[in-house]
Design a binder for these strands. Structure first.
Length: 417
DNA sequence: TCTGGGGTCCTAGGACCC
DNA sequence: TCTGGGGTCCTAGGACCC
């Protein structure tokens, strides 16, 4: 059995290009929430030196000079495109682990006589043809090596999009040339630790004594060393583990100084989070609320968070807004310009496993279901609670350059003439 | 002078991922 | 002026138990 990792190339940009071919061959970046940072870059944008996570205001001149196309995130579109990619992958293996929005692990069992690389090329070509999304495929005897193979495929275009690390000989050659920071799970802190001890290449990490890796980088490091040697330690996760936390947090479009303004924002975030809970069939038992000023701007700074067990498991918007507001009232201090806030639900359980309350609230579930149906049928925010406010919403996240939701909104379909 | 052993649970903080 | 959001896992240390 071989692990394959299929990963969408510059995924968000590729989704946009499917519906706007004029973007092909041009520098394109997609921005984070609130149009803050570049989170996806076409190869042309990478070639201009635009870094992952770079704040867009620092790029203004470059964008102007090089005529870079700048787009806001269109998560509705990317989520739907990702679903199509996964459906395509499921044709090639009964075992698919959806690892992130643009990455899936597959187990591959080539039939006798079938070349593994040819199979990988077939997967790429089919995904491209059926969804329009270009991908790269990494192959290896472990997930860590498949991931590394994918990195190699992206780095070396001459490989034709497939990085095969199943053969020990080729693997040894490549591992001695790749920096240790290229390994999945080795971040900046671990890279510093390793380099300080003279371990700078992937091969160096592979040859590190396992107990030494364990003491240096915890069990995570020990597992990585074994995986690099070809011993699988990470199985495919075919069914997603139960979710542990659900958060809605946002930077504000404009700073908010008043308690009323924060209450509206927190009510809006709690509304979205509660709807997500219901869609996933979950109830929350604990709530955290946080607010803070900007970490970048000068001026007085303040930030705080509070958690509390809810008096009962819930996914009820009325109740959750009320509880979030109680925490907010204890957090809020006057005299600050707040830049960000959020609500986080934890202690999640499936609604069908919950103990029923001794004091059922008549009709509340039916009311929530009715609201969800209306909003699903007529669009988000068709019906919402007055706590979100009816007037200006300075805290609203900016999406100034968002494209259409081509695949999920009949009124936003692409028109062809 | 000599002062056990083996556990669980919880939390805060760090690290990492996309 | 303008700097994202949503997750998971691991460890150390304290509290507590018998």
């Amino acid at each position: 059995m071989v692990f394959a990792l299929i990963d969408g190339n510059n995924f968000y940009v590729s989704c946009e290009r499917v519906f706007d071919p004029k973007l092909e061959g041009r520098p394109v970046i997609v921005l984070s929430n609130n149009d803050g940072c570049a989170v996806a870059r076409s190869n042309e944008a990478k070639a201009l030196g635009i870094k992952m996570g770079e704040p867009v205001f620092k790029l203004r001149d470059l964008i102007e000079r090089e005529r870079v196309t700048v787009l806001s995130s269109n998560y509705t579109l990317y989520g739907d495109m990702a679903r199509r990619v996964v459906e395509t992958l499921e044709r090639f293996s009964p075992e698919v682990e959806v690892y992130s929005i643009d990455e899936s692990f597959l187990s591959l069992e080539p039939t006798p006589g079938e070349r593994l690389v040819a199979l990988a090329e077939d997967i790429r070509a089919t995904v491209r043809r059926w969804t329009g999304i270009p991908t790269c495929v990494g192959l290896g005897p472990t997930k860590t090596l498949a991931k590394l193979g994918n990195t190699v495929a992206k780095k070396l275009p001459e490989l034709g999009g497939v990085g095969d690390l199943t053969s020990p000989a080729l693997r040894s050659l490549l591992l001695s040339r790749l920096p240790v920071s290229a390994v999945w799970g080795i971040g900046p802190a671990s890279t510093r630790k390793l380099c300080a001890r003279g371990i700078t290449t992937v091969a160096g990490l592979r040859d590190l004594d396992v107990s030494r890796a364990r003491s240096l980088l915890s069990v995570v490091g020990a597992r990585i060393v074994l995986e690099l040697r070809g011993t699988p330690c990470l199985p495919l996760e075919l069914l997603p583990p139960p979710q542990q936390a659900l958060a809605v947090t946002r930077s504000f479009g404009e700073r908010v100084a008043t308690l009323d303004g924060l209450k509206e924002a927190i009510a809006a975030f709690a509304t979205v989070a509660a709807a997500k809970l219901r869609r996933k069939g979950l109830l929350a038992g604990e709530l955290t609320v946080f607010i803070h000023t900007s970490a970048f701007s000068p001026g007085p700074r303040y930030g705080a968070s509070l958690s509390a067990a809810l008096p009962g498991m819930s996914a009820d918007t009325f109740f959750l807004i009320h509880e979030a507001h109680r925490l907010l009232a204890r957090l809020w201090r006057p005299g600050y310009r707040y830049a960000k806030a959020g609500v986080i639900f934890t202690d999640l359980i499936p609604a069908n496993r919950a103990q029923s309350s001794l004091l059922p609230v008549e009709g509340k579930d039916a009311l929530m279901a009715a609201i969800d149906r209306l909003n699903s049928r007529y669009g988000r925010n068709t019906v919402y609670l007055g706590a979100i406010g009816l007037g200006e919403r300075p805290w609203h996240t900016r999406f100034a350059y968002r494209t259409r939701r081509y695949t999920t909104r009949p009124d936003e379909l692409l028109t062809v003439s």
